[in-house]
Amino acid sequence: MSVLVYVENAEGKFKKSIFEAVSYAKSVAAQLDTSLIAISIGNVAQDELAKLAKYGANKTLNVNTEQLKTFVNQAYASVIAEAAKKENAEVVVLSNSFSGKGLAPRIGVKLEAAVISGAIELPDTTGGQFKVKRSAFSNKAFATVEATSKVKVISLTPNAYQVIEKAGEGNIEDFNAPVDQQDLKAVIKEVVRATDKVSLPDAELVVSAGRGLKGPENWGMIEELASLLGAATACSKPVSDADWRPHSEHVGQTGIAISPNLYIAIGISGAIQHLAGVSSSKVIVVINKDPEAPFFKVADYGIVGDAFEIVPKLIEAVKSLKANA
């Protein structure tokens, strides 16, 4: 038996969410009294792969072939499922990233495994059962799912589990699963990845603004506050609908769901569809000139006031905090 974790790379590097998935998988392996095996696909340098041992990987399978250099959903799912079979894995863990969302269900079908997506806690394995808590109803509730299949596939919500360093050794092995040409039909034509900015789904801190900002020309201060904090920027739906900001920044029911450590909402009313994407943030700050704005009901900290006066002062305060640090 073993636990297998898929370690997705972005341009040859592992992000924090991947170390979270490895740490989570290690804890699952410890609960099941077994070892943790990682599988990496694509071109990742040995020193980057070696980092996985620090979070508990006892062994890393390295699939670095020409055919699989870039992500192809179908082929990657086949290779991960093959590795799971070879290693006799009972649990397969992935990060619930955009790619993870495409892989987990396919791996699940191949292994006749229950697929638990968006897990937020470790499984309860007492007495041989296997129950995992995940979010449901667009963050308005949690569902505990009991898996009864022999193999389970879990995708972990980013920022839901801590990175835990362990003193440990692990070796790296090449793994060459045969790839079916049928699995390689998708051809990547273009990849655009903003590397200078913090990506929203991975961000620990997020500064977000809504229609209260009046127009795209006023986002300079939002960008500045975010960059000083090392935060990603987000926005409400009407803002991206009006093309004030790109669609990839739109959070909420119909945008993306995030759970950063800090979410600062500026000039956003807090409609239920907006909250659906952000309510699992650990700390929520609301800045709104209307004391009746519904967002204050779910906020930890709030300032009732005009964003155009307050945000510049916050920028100064962050600068002086940094200067004194």
Partner: peptide, 27 residues
């Protein structure tokens, strides 16, 4: 292969701590 055995709703957040608009640096 799996079944939902229980639902929960998130614990309500404590009430909001308001900071005076005249002193945003406190935030």
């Amino acid at each position: 292969l799996a079944q939902i055995v229980k639902f929960d709703t998130p614990a309500p957040r404590g009430s909001v701590k308001l900071i005076d608009a005249a002193e945003p640096e406190k935030l």
